[in-house]
Design a protein around this nucleic acid. Structure first.
Length: 564
RNA sequence: GCGCCCAUAGCUCAAUGGAUAGAGCACCGGCCUUCUAAGCCGGGGGUUGUGGGUUCGAAUCCCACUGGGCGCACCA
């Protein structure tokens, strides 16, 4: 039963452990509830490949000493061909080690599943909507948007791998003052392009791209719009164009949105009114001072919030509530918003709103992305779209490249403040962890090429005798590979891409160590010219590693290079 | 003033409440006549911002301080 291809060793151990605990509890006649199975990979290899501290948690309720509890559980556990008999350690840990035979099981599982290795159906009944970037189309994306974009997209990839139905959505607010200002900015740039000597808006969008856009409009329409005073046509023209620019950058970053959702849609389809009516009928709205308030304080917000001002207009919150209600209406069971950290004050009222609508607060996850400070040649730079003073995402992609950009954003947790140092990122050498990981994949490819050169090309591994893989490094590599599917599930659960990045680096470290060991000890080389059987066995391990590297890199949207 | 986030090696960052807090960069010393040295091995470097608390066990959870970031509208 535990030999199912899709089951990781971890899951097999969990089953065994669970059975042991049940049996043990019964034998001592305890009423204790079945605790959550805890199983971790110890930092220290001496503590085995997997370890559980379950006896330490259990002993409290049983009023027994943890060591005895551990022994009792071990005695009651069924045996498994995948692991060696478990050991009880000091305070009350149970340590598990992979059985030698499990190496073969693990490698074959990776190869059998191929590109699907790492995927699972853990969350198959759930649908998640990842909303990210969501910058209003008032200018090109800057580097900070890039960080949010990469994190959002990678989360989406991770969710998909963990079995979620996933949709990527970009929301933009095209009904507000910002867009009006944008249109007005373009109108003036256009008139200036026509030669009129008029001053620019004080609060207008001052970037060069607006000057260019004015020229472009002149080139397309001549002076036919000279007399147009309504800003709307200018707004539409600018927004359309800028969305195009934004999308270009995003596609380059390997990000594709399923939906571009505009605020106007909500108004047109009556979703704002619908959401407020729903809140009204649930008794969550009330009138005061001529305004309509949401009783958000009931749900942990620090105060109630106005949704309809006394002048009859909606506040920003109203369409936002409607938007999130509409997300649920479309069948999503989990909402993930990737936001700039400056929006954090907004989260409690949003969570309050979805609760007022009858949803659970944990169905909404807000991932806060901290600002990116940029340093160039030692100079710190200020970023402001309005002032036209910023590092665009395009510049970053031109200078640094997609793989490096994505990986650098993914090596830090979203909420850590980061300094993006251009010179450092451009450096193609040591400071760039991307290469470390890509190098590992390329080395696997290189070994395959080498084997081919000496006439021992890998023969798909089916006939290989994997029992020959007895080096401790080989067992360790197999164990590391086995962790991958669980890492993906955990990353999805926590909405935390860094888990995958860290895992990838660890796996690369293990592999580089294995590879380099062959420099000193020729018997550890993968390609053994006078031992075809061992060569085939090792190549099969390499093939599985290569697959795992490729799958993990794909999850991060980074290219698995064949050679560096 | 109130709230949220952050604080870990000189620097950039890790560490599902677990056993001796780890990598990379920088610094010191080793390893290329045969699978890629963008790599590997070893060394120095820490009172996890400070002080309490919770418990078998805390970088992790709670409280109070200190320092930094960001929010506190009938703005969007």
């Amino acid at each position: 039963m535990p030999d199912s291809l899709h089951q990781t060793i971890r899951e097999a151990i969990e089953d065994i452990l669970r059975a042991g605990v049940e049996q043990y509890l019964e034998s001592v006649g305890a009423q204790a509830e079945m605790p959550e199975i805890s199983l971790e990979v110890p930092r220290n290899a001496e503590h085995g490949d997997w370890a559980s501290s379950l006896p330490l948690r259990l002993c409290k309720g049983l009023k027994k000493n943890p060591f005895e509890v551990a022994e009792g559980i071990v005695a009651a556990m069924p045996a498994s061909s995948l692991i060696e008999p478990p050991q009880v350690a000091r305070p009350g840990f149970i340590n598990f080690r992979l059985a030698a035979g499990s190496v073969e099981h693990l490698i074959r599982r990776v190869l059998e599943l191929g590109e699907k290795y790492g995927q699972s159906d853990t969350f198959k009944n759930e649908r998640v909507l990842v909303e990210f970037v969501s910058a209003n189309p008032t200018g090109p994306l800057h580097i900070g948007h890039g960080r949010g974009a990469v994190i959002g997209d990678t989360l989406a990839r991770i969710f998909a791998a963990a079995g979620y139905g996933v949709s990527r959505e970009y929301y933009y607010n095209d009904a507000g003052v910002q867009m009006k200002t944008l249109g007005e900015s373009l109108r003036i740039r256009y008139l200036q392009a026509l030669g009129e000597d008029i001053p620019f808006l004080e609060n207008g969008y001052k970037g060069d791209y607006m000057v260019e856009l004015g020229e472009k409009l002149k080139a397309e329409r001549g002076d036919s719009m000279r007399g147009v005073t309504d800003t709307q046509p200018f707004t539409d023209y600018a927004a359309n164009f800028i969305i195009g620019l934004i999308n270009e950058d995003l596609e380059r970053l390997r990000i594709h949105f399923d939906t571009w959702f505009s605020e106007t849609t909500l108004h047109k389809e009556g979703k704002v009114k619908q959401a407020l009516d729903e809140l009204e009928s649930r008794g969550k709205l009330y009138e005061q001072d001529g305004a309509k308030w949401l009783a958000s304080a009931e749900y942990g917000d620090e105060k109630d919030r106005v949704v309809i001002k006394s002048d009859g207009n909606y506040t920003y919150l109203a369409p936002d509530i409607a938007y999130h209600a509409y997300k649920f209406e479309r069948g999503f069971t989990r909402l993930v918003n990737v936001l700039g950290a400056d929006h954090h004050g907004y989260i409690p009222r949003l969570k309050a709103a979805i609760q007022a609508l009858g949803h659970r607060p944990d169905q909404l996850d807000c991932v806060l992305v901290q600002m990116v400070a940029v340093e160039r040649a030692g100079e710190a730079m200020k970023l402001s779209t309005r002032a036209g003073d910023f590092i665009t995402l395009k510049e970053v992609l031109d200078e640094i490249g997609v793989d490096v950009t994505r990986f650098l954003f993914l090596t830090r947790t979203a909420d850590s403040q980061m300094v993006f140092d251009f010179e450092l990122a451009k450096d193609t050498s040591m400071d760039n962890p991307v290469y470390y990981v890509q190098y590992a994949h390329a080395r696997c490819c290189s070994l395959m090429r080498k084997a081919e050169e000496v006439g021992q090309a890998w023969e798909n591994g089916e006939g290989a005798d994997l029992g020959l893989l007895t080096a401790p490094e080989e067992k360790a590599l197999a164990h590391q590979m086995d962790r991958f599917p669980q890492i993906v599930i955990e990353a999805a659960r926590q909405a935390e891409p860094v888990l995958v990045t860290s895992y990838l680096r660890d796996l690369a470290t293990a592999f580089h160590g294995y590879f380099t060991a062959g420099n000193k000890d020729l018997s550890l080389r993968v390609v053994q010219e006078n031992n075809p059987a061992l060569t085939q066995a090792r190549l099969t391990l390499i093939a599985a590693l290569k697959q795992t590297f490729a799958n993990a890199l794909e999850l991060l949207g980074v290219t698995p290079l064949e050679r560096l």
